Amino acid sequence: MALDKKSGYRKNFSLGVTFIVLISILFILSLFLAFNFSKKSIENEFVSEKVNVLEQSIKAYNDFFQNKMPEISYYNGFLDSATAAKFVDTVTIKYPFISKVTFYDTEVKNIAVKDGMNVGNLSIGPKSIFQFGKTVDPDSIKLFSEYDTRSFKVGDDFNAMAYKLVTFVDQLDTAAVPTQEELFTNFSVVKSNKITYLNIPRREDLKIYKDMMRRKLDPLPVYQQDMLVFQLDPNKIKVI
């Protein structure tokens, strides 16, 4: 009888120990799972907030790029130094990350130009070049004119955009209508610290540009284009 009690006690003790060990394992496992779940939840929340901060921080940049900059095309190439200065004033006040703007008052001609790009009988060159910005000295606003080329040399920004224009015109299918995405892509150059934008000509003008590339027209046409180079300062983008 005593042996039976002793044996029963041992069994109960073993079951108790097993139960405690099992509970301990389950408790540790639940803590581990809870920790991983909390960690994952915090990471997801952090990523979500980081995306929200990024979206809010670049909201002004996207607004400028998608809405304000294309307004240049509304002028149909007839910006001058005065209207360009007003446009730039508005832009730099609303978008502080734009540090300086260079304005190329440009002509597309059917005769060769000295400063610019000549492809076939199509030529693209600036009549004058101006720069605007809070840090620009008033004496340095005008950089170039076709009558006085000593102060400035037409550089890479202009040539890169002019090359995109002539390439687009050369490959243009005059029977098809270019999409807005195609036009925007071919009339802008985006880099990390600057954006170059050329006003988008009308479809009829693009057809004439293509004709001008192939032959001399009579009378010799001259078309106005506006090219602006926006210098960007990423440090001025406000993190929200």
Rank of each mutant, 00 (worst) to 15 (best):
F144E: 14
P221G: 02
I141D: 11
E146G: 06
I200V: 12
F78N: 11
K114C: 01
F130P: 13
Q66I: 05
A2Y: 10
D218W: 05
P178H: 03
A60S: 11
N193S: 08
D205N: 03
D156N: 15
E45Y: 04
S192V: 13
K238N: 10
S151I: 04
K11P: 00
L217T: 04
D137L: 07
D80V: 00
T179V: 12
V91G: 02
D4S: 13
I25E: 14
P221Q: 04
A82H: 01
K5G: 03
V119I: 14
K100W: 05
E107G: 14
K59Y: 08
T196W: 00
Q56P: 09
S57T: 10
A112E: 13
F144H: 11
E49R: 06
P221R: 01
R203T: 06
N36G: 10
L206D: 03
T179S: 15
D170Q: 15
Q66W: 03
V108C: 04
L183A: 01
K207T: 05
A175F: 10
I98N: 02
A175T: 15
F87R: 09
Y61W: 03
E181F: 10
S38L: 14
I93F: 00
S140G: 04
F37W: 12
I240C: 12
G133M: 13
T179F: 10
F46G: 06
Q231H: 05
Q131W: 02
Q225G: 02
K50A: 10
I208S: 01
V239D: 10
N52R: 08
S24P: 07
V189F: 06
Q66L: 09
I237A: 05
K86Q: 09
E45A: 12
I111M: 03
S73Y: 06
E49W: 00
A175C: 08
Y95H: 01
A112L: 06
N193K: 07
D105P: 10
S123I: 07
G8Q: 08
M212W: 02
K164H: 07
N199R: 09
S38D: 14
T174M: 12
N12A: 07
E181C: 07
Y223D: 06
L29T: 15
D63Q: 01
D63C: 00
P126E: 06
K86T: 07
F184C: 01
K86D: 12
I72K: 09
A60F: 00
D105E: 15
D63E: 05
D148I: 07
D226K: 08
L54S: 03
R10E: 12
D157I: 03
K5R: 09
R215N: 05
K134Y: 11
L79W: 01
D63T: 01
F230Y: 13
V119F: 12
L143W: 05
I208E: 11
K191Y: 03
I240R: 15
D170F: 10
S151M: 09
A82Q: 03
A176Y: 03
V189D: 09
T179Q: 13
L54M: 05
N36P: 08
M117Q: 14
D137Y: 00
L228Q: 13
P96L: 02
N110K: 00
Q171H: 10
D4A: 14
R215T: 09
V166C: 08
F46P: 04
F35K: 15
F37E: 15
K5S: 07
L183W: 00
L31G: 13
I124N: 09
N110H: 02
V136H: 11
G116Q: 07
E71C: 01
D63P: 00
D218M: 05
F230Q: 08
